[in-house]
Design a protein around this nucleic acid. Structure first.
Lengths: 162, 162
DNA sequence: TCCATTAGTTAGCACTGCTAACTAATTATA
DNA sequence: TATAATTAGTTAGCAGTGCTAACTAATGGA
């Protein structure tokens, strides 16, 4: 779904330089379909996607304040407040008040949280690796290159916005 | 976040044949970050993501029964029942009972629904095209190739499951 | 000192996912 | 044919995730 190629094409121009628009559309569709597979593994963690994502930020990015977490996850403070409360309730993260500024809280992943995240991560990636099993080395190279490009591009866009 | 490369690497092996695992991980991360941008455009539609996605299926896939919709969206029937009710309430889709089997309903996108979807689609893709604006023609080629590969791979995985 | 700003929380709404339990229609079977 | 099993959808109720508005508490500047 959601692909220009699904619509009647009255432009029989051959594939010369792909337009940004076409590339954007195909990437969009591909990303949706890819993540749909990965996401299904997450139910096994028993933790919702927002909590899992915030936890991953804590595990890989280290302890941080609620506001930082919210900004990184592109979510408003009240939403992150609830997510952190959930993580705390499940024993996956702990919070302590900042020594130098009593308004701030410092959120940290617990050992249990790190363990759970690694397992969830492994399941997701393993699932994707599984569906890549029929791919040639060359295809894997193309995909890796594309993934790196995308990360660069997205990072550039985010930096430009800051 | 969520990338092996963020973790301490004690394996200094150069980039020879990328492992499926590594490719899966990088793709996973890239897809998440890419869609995070596109998704933010959707608030402008005034329709939630699940409804938008179901509507796109109706627009591009034609009218179908509720069960088909649920299966295609990988969602349970009660969830799709509510999504369709919402689309109907907003005048974006209409339902009629199947003539040959009175248990079934036939869900169809309205003209208004098609219009709204095209606008939402355009916004999403335009946003992605925008962040691609700094890319060379060669990069666009790599990205397009990767998108096509992913669609093939995901399709194969889905077909295999059937 | 007093006021504006900043960090987080609480309350309340909407949307999306689930399971369990239901109705109604269809199909299979005794 | 009558009844039982299956199938299609709906309803009710729960949890999670997003928002805005309104609040409290702490900080920092005039």
């Amino acid at each position: 779904m959601l692909s220009w190629s699904d619509m009647p094409r009255h432009d029989p121009r051959p594939t010369k330089p792909p337009s940004r628009f076409e590339v954007a559309d195909r990437l969009h569709s591909a990303a949706i379909h890819l993540l749909r597979h990965a996401r299904k593994q997450d139910v096994l963690a028993g933790v919702g996607p927002a909590r899992l994502s915030a936890l991953s930020l804590l595990v890989f990015g280290g302890p941080m304040a609620l506001g930082q977490l919210a900004a990184a996850e592109q979510v408003k403070a009240p939403t992150m407040s609830r997510i952190v409360a959930g993580l705390q309730r499940s024993g996956l993260a702990k919070i302590e008040t900042d020594a130098s500024d009593a308004r701030r809280i410092r959120v940290t992943a617990t050992a249990k949280g790190e363990r759970l995240l690694q397992q969830a991560r492994t399941r997701r990636v393993q699932k994707l690796a599984e569906i890549l099993s029929g791919s040639t080395g060359q295809d894997l190279g193309t995909l890796l290159g594309a993934a790196e490009l995308i990360e660069q591009i997205v990072k550039r866009a985010a930096d430009g916005k800051r």
